[in-house]
Design a protein around this nucleic acid. Structure first.
Lengths: 134, 134
DNA sequence: TCGATATATATCGGCTCTCGATATATCCTG
DNA sequence: CAGGATATATCGAGAGCCGATATATATCGA
């Protein structure tokens, strides 16, 4: 939809890896933590994302450890990964800001007594109740 | 992935409608405008999104006009739509902030001389070059 | 006048992504 | 010993987005 902005899952995986290398299951827990439980990255989503990010060169396999009999496969961000995450964060902040500004604009329009003068883009044949939400 | 956060396309449609009612093609242009050309909402995406948002009660058909022989179908946000957009904007701002903070943390870790003391979560058997991006 | 471009609607097939279920295996706790 | 946490991974189903396509009118330049 956008030029080439990443998926939500990819964004949160990169965010989880931004401070230090982590393994799959650790990413799952970290995403949950850093979002105060709001974002639940699913296991079924994780490995596909990890593969895609690796293929795109945004993350790399850092190392493999065996802790208490269980394999841990650690990933870390590449420079491209950091840059991509930074860009995406900027886009999101910009989008959030735009949305909030426009909501405020909408409220002002709904409050405004009666758009009499050069009312901008409104078609002069505007029917119904001017402005205001349903 | 998240509890029930909307899609990117839905977010931008709601944002485009936040200040005033618009018709389909107008939404397309407005999304392009408000994102400085960064977000290209496609025609093939639009009508599905419009239907879904209507079904979810986040937008409603405001009115229909015939301007210069062409039908224009205007949509506007409902109160639920405004609330949903506001919530989503908050989530996005939070996500963007978290990403940026963590990138900064990662850079500090990469710069830090040598993590000697109680190094937090790092496994004590940490091999390889501590921290740092590839 | 003819063709291209802009405006304006809408659908469809294909592809990608996410989810839930499932599978396997170890360790810890009750 | 059972259940839950840790840890990996795959698969099918469903949802969503894109590109192509279709239809129709208005405008503008060649």
């Amino acid at each position: 939809m956008t030029a080439k902005s990443m998926t939500r899952a990819a964004f949160f995986v990169l965010t989880a890896l931004a401070d230090q290398p982590r393994h799959g299951y650790g990413i799952l827990r970290e995403v949950d933590d850093l979002s105060d439980g709001e974002v639940q990255l699913r296991v079924g989503t994780l490995y596909g994302v990890l593969d895609r990010l690796t293929a795109d060169g945004l993350i790399v396999l850092d190392r493999e450890e065996i802790q208490q009999g269980r394999l841990r496969r650690y990933y870390r961000l590449t420079d491209d990964g950091v840059a991509a995450l930074d860009t995406e964060a900027e886009r999101m902040a910009a989008g959030a800001g735009a949305a909030r500004r426009r909501i405020a604009e909408g409220r002002r329009a709904a409050t405004r007594p009666a758009p009499q003068g050069p009312a901008g883009l409104e078609p002069s044949s505007a029917p119904g109740l001017a402005g205001g939400y349903a």
